[in-house]
Each structure stands twice: as structure tokens, then as C-alpha cells.
Amino acid sequence: MKLVIDHAVLADAVAWAAHALTNRPAVPVLTGLLLDADGDELTISAFDYDTSRRATISADVAEPGRVLLPGRVLVEIVRALPKKPVELTLSGHEATITCGSAEFGLLTLPIDDYPNLPDAPDAIGDVDAHTLAAAVAQVVPAAGKDDTLPMLTGVRLDINDSDLTLAATDRYRIAARDLAWQPNGVDTPAGAMIPGRVLADIAKSLPAGPVSVGVTDGLAAFTGGGRTTTVRLLDPQFIDYNARLQLSDFSIWAEVDAAPLISAVKRVSLVAERNTAVRLSWTDGEVLVQAGGGDTGRGAETVAAELDGAPMEIAFQSQFLLDGLAGVDGRARIGMTTGAKPALIVDPGGTPAYRYLVMALRLS
């Protein structure tokens, strides 16, 4: 194996692939990055049995070959190299990395022990990377963190002819986002459950442009810009979230600029004890935001708002409220019924793409 490659291209690819390396590998070879050189391309792969990443980049390949190198060490070496072409040569059990006057020799890992990477499912449609990343950021905060309840740690993907819906819940709130996509016209599963933390990591690293989505019964794949990530799916069981997110269930509606309300909630929460309520008192023209009153102190601030319905007083766990408001760009509409029942936060419009149901706390 012998090749020459641009330093910046190599550094970006190995850093991206290394996100799939696990800190607690089932077997030692899973700490490695697999490099496969053939034709005029170099493919860099990582796998931990649940997630795989493959990046294919251009390279001047003089001698094709495959090698498994210690992943995190390779990332650090490549990152530290001067910004000059990098030459990689394999001789026996050592890979030599040369860049300018710098030279490193890395002992290889046993490539024969490395498991076969899963084949990516065929694409069932395409979605814009920026749109998908924004949707994931809106929904993932509502996914649970308790791994003993896997269903609650995932993000549900529901697929139909023209829309892709993402949804998540941790029992205290539900977030859902509809986004347009381009299906390929092939038969698709009704839905899939992807681990929330993994999906968030995938979304942050998507290259600009269209991303192909593939789903089978047990695996999902996201491909774009020469990079493919596969992830093992969770059990598809999930709640009927659409039944809980009906706008017609809410008789009182408030409308407010999301940014000022977020700022006010953050400020008054400085004097609130952990997990205590932030109280919102809605009247036509403003909302009074209050928190505290215990041993530390109290805070209050008013924000301009519009109210359609009777005055309302309702309280929320502050971070749950902030997560919901953060998903809205501009004006937020908040649907309520009573102070004891959940509230629905949506973006403006008759058919909102973003919906966030949050449990209310008991007023004291």
C-alpha cells in the first residue's frame, strides 16, 4: 500500500470517521480506523457494531491495499502534521506517515480480526442536509436519556409520500417536526427508531447538499458528500404522538416573540431552585414570568404578548420550556386549556411544521 493525499482532506476525513470509535470497545480492533486504498480513492472506516462511518476521498494511489491503524493516535498525528501532501506507505506491520520532514511509524492492528462493516440500505429518498440538521436539533432535546427505557431515547422517523416526520418523547414532553423530502418511489418501512444521541451526532456532521436516507428493518443509513453513516435501529414501538398534538384540543392561544421570552425565562430562573417551576401569567398584552421565592430569592419580568382567550396562569420546568421555545424561529404560538394540563408550542401558521407538547407543573 502506497499513496499520497492532501493533508486537509485526510485530516477532515479521519476526524469525521473517528466519531464512530467507541471508548469501550467490545474487541481491541474496534479502536482502529480501516484504510482501504484502491483506484484513485481512499476509504476510511470505523465501526462499533452499532454505528459505522465511511468516508471516501480522492488520493494518488501508487499501490492499493488495506491497513488497520490505531484510530485516535492517527487522528492526532494527522492533525499535527504540516500543511503539505501526506505520503502513507505500508511495509509489513508498520505504516509510515511522511509529511515534509516529519515522519511517523504506526504499528498496525490485526486486520483479519476486524468485523465486516454493514452494507448501507438502499436509499429511499433525499433530504436537504441543513433542513434535516435543523429538524433534528428541534426534536432531540425531547428524547430521554435513560438507557433502561430504549424507546424513550430514540427519535422516531415516520415516512410517507411527501413528508418525513421526526418525533421524540421522554414522557414529560413530546417534540415533532415535519419536513419535506424527495422519496425515491420505492417501498419503505412505515417508520424507524434511531438512537437520539447518535442521530444528533450524525446531523451535526452532515455535508452541505442533499443527503440520501436508507432504511431497512434493522438499519438506517445517511449518505452525502462521499460519506456514509449507518446506525442500528431501536425497537420501532412508539406512542401515537399525532393524537396528542392536535391544535383543536387547545382553547386558549398566546402569541409571543420567542427570543425575548427565552431571555426572560433564563434571567428569572437564576433565582429558582433546581427543577422548580417557572410561572407564566398571561393577559392580553403581556406575559409575566416569575420564578423563585424560596431561600435564594425571586425574579420577575414582563414580555409583550398577545392572548386569544381568558387570562391564564401556568407553570413549567424551566429547561423543558426553554427547549420548546428554542425550536421556534421568530414568533411562538402557545396553546393552553387549564393551568394543570400540558401546553402546546408551535411555530406560526395554520399547519405548523414544529409541535412541542410540554407538561405543566402544579401551581402552589
Results as ranks from 00 to 15, higher is better:
residue 1 M to Y: 08
residue 5 I to R: 01
residue 5 I to Q: 05
residue 6 D to R: 13
residue 11 A to E: 12
residue 19 H to G: 07
residue 23 N to S: 15
residue 29 V to Q: 08
residue 34 L to E: 04
residue 37 A to E: 04
residue 37 A to C: 11
residue 50 D to W: 05
residue 50 D to T: 08
residue 53 R to K: 13
residue 54 R to I: 02
residue 55 A to K: 01
residue 55 A to L: 12
residue 58 S to A: 15
residue 59 A to T: 02
residue 72 R to P: 00
residue 74 L to E: 00
residue 75 V to G: 01
residue 77 I to H: 09
residue 80 A to E: 15
residue 81 L to Q: 06
residue 81 L to T: 06
residue 86 V to S: 03
residue 95 A to M: 15
residue 97 I to T: 13
residue 105 G to R: 14
residue 107 L to R: 14
residue 108 T to L: 13
residue 110 P to D: 11
residue 111 I to T: 14
residue 118 P to S: 05
residue 119 D to P: 01
residue 122 D to N: 12
residue 124 I to R: 03
residue 125 G to V: 10
residue 130 H to R: 14
residue 145 K to I: 07
residue 146 D to S: 13
residue 159 I to Q: 06
residue 161 D to Y: 10
residue 166 L to N: 03
residue 168 A to G: 04
residue 174 I to M: 11
residue 177 R to Q: 09
residue 190 A to R: 15
residue 190 A to S: 13
residue 195 P to L: 12
residue 200 A to V: 03
residue 203 A to K: 00
residue 211 V to F: 03
residue 211 V to D: 00
residue 219 L to D: 02
residue 230 T to C: 05
residue 235 D to N: 14
residue 237 Q to A: 12
residue 241 Y to D: 07
residue 245 L to M: 07
residue 247 L to P: 01
residue 248 S to N: 12
residue 256 V to I: 15
residue 256 V to M: 10
residue 266 K to E: 15
residue 272 A to V: 06
residue 277 A to V: 09
residue 279 R to G: 00
residue 280 L to K: 11
residue 282 W to C: 06
residue 283 T to H: 08
residue 284 D to C: 08
residue 285 G to I: 15
residue 294 G to N: 12
residue 299 G to L: 05
residue 302 T to Y: 03
residue 308 D to L: 09
residue 311 P to N: 14
residue 315 A to D: 05
residue 315 A to M: 04
residue 318 S to Q: 15
residue 328 V to I: 14
residue 328 V to E: 01
residue 332 A to C: 08
residue 337 T to R: 12
residue 338 T to Y: 11
residue 344 L to M: 13
residue 345 I to L: 15
residue 355 R to C: 06
residue 362 R to L: 13
